[in-house]
Simulated scan of single mutants.
Amino acid sequence: MAQLREFTYPSSDGVHAIHAQEWVPQVPLRGVVQIVHGVAEHMGRYEGAAAFLAEHGYLVCGEDHLGHGKTAQQGEEGFFGEKDGWSLVTRDVAALRKLQGEKYPDQPYFLLGHSMGSFLTRTYLINYPGTLTGVILSGTGQESAPLVALGKWLAGLERRRLGHRGISPLVDKLSLGAYNRKFAPNRTGADWISRDESQVDAYLADPYCQYQSTVSMFEAMMGGLQYIAKKENLSRMDPSTPVYFFSGDQDPVGGMGKGVKKVVEMFRQAGCRDVTLRLYPGGRHEMFHELNAPEVLDDLLAWLEEHRGNA
């Protein structure tokens, strides 16, 4: 059993206390895995994966982003900030990496980003090259540049109409709503995240997942997607950092596998020398909550064990 510790540290916005947690192994430490969670969720949802990794000697940590989980104050759900929201959250991720690195020096250190967290992790790779033993990207993708630009423009238009904290049914329908339509007829509004109905129901019942993103947060995320697609930015990554991509081949965020392969190719063209891709047949967006989650975790552990010596 892992020992769960919760703590806070100052956000880069100078206002909030970021809520973080770590699962500490009760066996000799083999490395640290920092998880960067996705949109409209929180670190508590990674308890199963964290317990598995801790059982095998990996300390798992992560924070609830601004506007998420226990970091968000009432009325702030789905809201990063009025200005530079993407930069603020990336800096909060980097602050936790620094904090944990000081607590556990000389340990292999991995960053694992899921969905929006994978976009933040890709931003981290550009902004903080050479600070990680390896990187894991789950449920990532890359929409075409015109589509991302259109999404950002539309979100900006809605922000001017509704304010920074406004909620736009139109923006939500064109983003997360579009993902679910691929699995019609739908049992729920979140069929796209997993084939495991019990996991979908748990997600829908989670009080920290029951809100829509603000238009300013969506606009910030589209700006982030533009940033991580630019070749000149990708060239700033450390090409020696190993990267492990895994996704379901029925994940709409990853374009049913095509978008994931696109990002893999972007990394290889940027000179990354150790890039691994694993696509799981039939898997949807959240492979840690899929029917074959044990297989996914076993594969992740094998990759960590193979690469921990790079520290």
Rank of each mutant, 00 (worst) to 15 (best):
F7Y: 13
D299A: 12
Q3L: 12
M256D: 14
S12Q: 13
A293I: 10
L111G: 00
I18L: 11
S115I: 04
H114K: 01
D106E: 13
E295A: 09
I136F: 02
G101N: 07
I35Y: 05
M256K: 15
D274A: 09
R5W: 09
R284P: 10
L234D: 02
L154R: 13
Y227S: 04
T133N: 08
K231T: 15
D251R: 04
K98Y: 06
R268V: 13
Q212E: 10
G282C: 05
T133F: 05
G282Q: 07
P207R: 04
H37G: 03
A178F: 15
L234G: 08
S175W: 02
R122A: 07
Y227E: 02
V215A: 08
F110V: 02
G257Y: 12
A229Q: 04
A51H: 07
G156T: 06
I167Y: 10
K258A: 14
L225F: 05
A202D: 04
D172C: 05
L120C: 07
P281K: 06
G44P: 13
N186R: 02
E63W: 10
M116K: 06
L204A: 13
H65M: 12
L204T: 03
L59N: 00
I167F: 14
R159Y: 14
H164S: 14
P207Q: 05
D106A: 15
R30H: 09
P252H: 03
Y179E: 12
Q74F: 09
A50M: 15
S115D: 06
G113Q: 05
L304E: 01
G78N: 08
D172V: 04
F288N: 06
R236V: 05
R236P: 03
A229T: 12
F288D: 01
Q199T: 03
P239T: 12
G38L: 06
H164M: 08
A51L: 06
S87P: 14
L297E: 11
G248D: 11
R284F: 12
E77R: 04
L147N: 12
G282L: 07
E82Y: 10
V243S: 00
H37K: 08
A155H: 01
Q226P: 02
D13S: 06
N233Q: 06
L88G: 13
S247W: 13
N180M: 12
Y104I: 11
G69Q: 14
E6C: 11
L112N: 03
N233G: 07
T188F: 05
G113Y: 00
V33T: 12
K261A: 13
R308S: 14
Q74I: 03
P239A: 10
G69F: 04
L150P: 06
S168F: 04
E290V: 06
L204V: 11
D249M: 01
